[in-house]
Amino acid sequence: MASRPLSAFWAILRRDLLLAFRHRGELANPLLFFLMIVSLYPLGISPEPDLLRAIAPGAVWIAALLSALFSMENLFRGDFQDGTLEQIALSPQPLPLLLAAKILAHWLVSGLPMILMAPVLALLLSMPAAATWALVYTLALGTPLLSLIGAVGTALTVGLKRGGVLLTLLVMPLYIPILIFATNAVSAAAAGLPISGQLYFLAALLVLALTLSPLAIAAAVRISLG
């Protein structure tokens, strides 16, 4: 009996990954979005390598915020529209755990590829090797945070007709600490400074979000269904 909540967790994770795989054509869209925003900076500001190097941490991270938000909008929408979300909410298994499985699946198909693509973007913006590694570390800690916090906003707006812009308004201010610490870590690494402090802070935020946000997300989903 004790293992049953976990088997429901794996079942939802598997189902969402399977669904993502059946729509694999759409998988690349947030990634393309990420790549395109980053490539706008050299075009819009200057291709000068020194300047690019200076703005690179912020450029990549702002693009990451935007593409996380962009992909986040559909996290619960499909399930809400076809009635699966209410079936999930009516399961006797703990709802926060089931929704955590959905978020994990979403992160695996949208957050993880962003981390893998980061070195390419670092190359485009002529970042030094140390900063590239820092970018990978901060994205590894930061993208799950973006997903967890963004999911609260998504759950609150899933029942609304024009939820997209509203979602951005709700979630963007909450993303600011992540942006500050992550970009600072990358800049510090580029300057040859230690970054463990910033990484610890991001890790602490991640632990906090992992424990608290599933509860808020579950409450928000119940409100949106009601």
Partner: peptide, 12 residues
Amino acid sequence: YIGHQAGIKGDL
């Protein structure tokens, strides 16, 4: 509970 929406995933 079976509601208005069947709760069926069309892609599965």
